[in-house]
């Protein structure tokens, strides 16, 4: 079985700068790590690999510097690591990113199972998984908290939703995005690290993907960031301190009065 894991690299610090013209993140010059939530997707793939004749490839889209994050996946046990990198990909929103990932999966596939994390810790949209699945025309299950079963006939998963838990059986190929409840990601072994150091990370550009210029990068992105601002402070706070604390407590009490459980004795 061929498994593909979608990885995003995220800045390893909170000090992210934005390009004031395009409103997109400046990723150059910032250290990157694998999005922590994607590690659960990778771990899911590695556990499947352990129980059968399966191969695990990871793919990420980003600037050349993202290579180090992708290398980490080899250290953890992935067989193949691919970085989609091309100047023409820069400024991609979730649609254009998904397009590149979907095209890669088509060209290098077919993959039987595609795994993704719930969302990235920087953008927090959680859109690339389902968008990629829709572009590939395959079933998608999101918010998966448990892999129940996997065999040739399909994958059975548990989804955690607002009103409870669902068990779904999906045929293969399918795309599954997992939450952090699905497993505890492993740490790279010493051996894995050694392997990763010498591993070659494949770099793939649009020469290979052959996407139309209108489908990639900023040009292929339907959304535009038009304005950036800081969250506004909309309240005027009344402060209670020292001797006035008592008054503050009385004020809270007054506010809570309508909610008191009068019959609680």
């Amino acid at each position: 079985m061929k498994i593909l894991v979608l990885l995003k690299q995220v800045p390893d610090s909170d000090e992210v700068k934005l390009n004031p013209e395009t409103g997109t993140m400046i990723r150059e010059g910032v250290g990157t790590v694998i999005n922590p939530l994607d590690l659960h997707a990778l771990e899911t793939a590695l556990r499947i690999k352990e129980i059968g004749d399966h191969s695990v490839a990871v793919v990420s889209m980003g600037p050349p510097v993202a290579e180090e994050a992708v290398r980490e996946a080899i250290a953890m046990g992935a067989d193949r690591a691919v970085l989609l990198t091309d100047r023409k990909f820069a400024g991609a929103d979730t649609w254009a990113t998904s397009m590149a990932l979907a095209r890669f999966a088509e060209k290098e596939g077919p993959f039987d199972l595609i795994l993704a994390g719930e969302k990235a810790t920087d953008g927090e949209t959680g859109q690339v998984g389902p968008e990629t699945g829709a572009m590939l025309g395959i079933p998608v299950a999101t918010y998966v908290s448990r892999i129940v079963e996997l065999d040739e006939s399909g994958i059975t998963v548990e989804r955690e939703v607002e009103e409870g838990k669902e068990i779904w059986k999906l045929p293969l190929p399918s795309l599954v995005s997992v939450t952090k409840d699905v497993n505890e990601p492993r740490l790279p072994t010493l051996n894995g690290k050694k392997l990763a150091r010498n591993a070659s990370i494949e770099r793939i550009g649009n020469d290979f993907l052959e996407l139309d210029p209108s489908e990639i990068g900023l040009k292929g992105s339907p959304t535009r960031v038009v304005r950036i601002g800081t969250p506004k402070l909309s309240r005027k706070v009344e402060m209670y301190e020292g001797n006035s604390i008592r008054d503050g407590i009385d004020e809270i009490k007054k506010r809570l009065a309508p909610y008191l459980e009068v019959n609680h004795e």
């Binding site: 859109q127 968008e131 829709a134």
Partner: peptide, 15 residues
């Protein structure tokens, strides 16, 4: 949060 990305992908539009 699952069908909207799928829909945006099929319609080629932003979300």
């Amino acid at each position: 949060r699952t069908y909207m990305p799928g829909l945006a992908a099929l319609l080629k539009t932003g979300l």
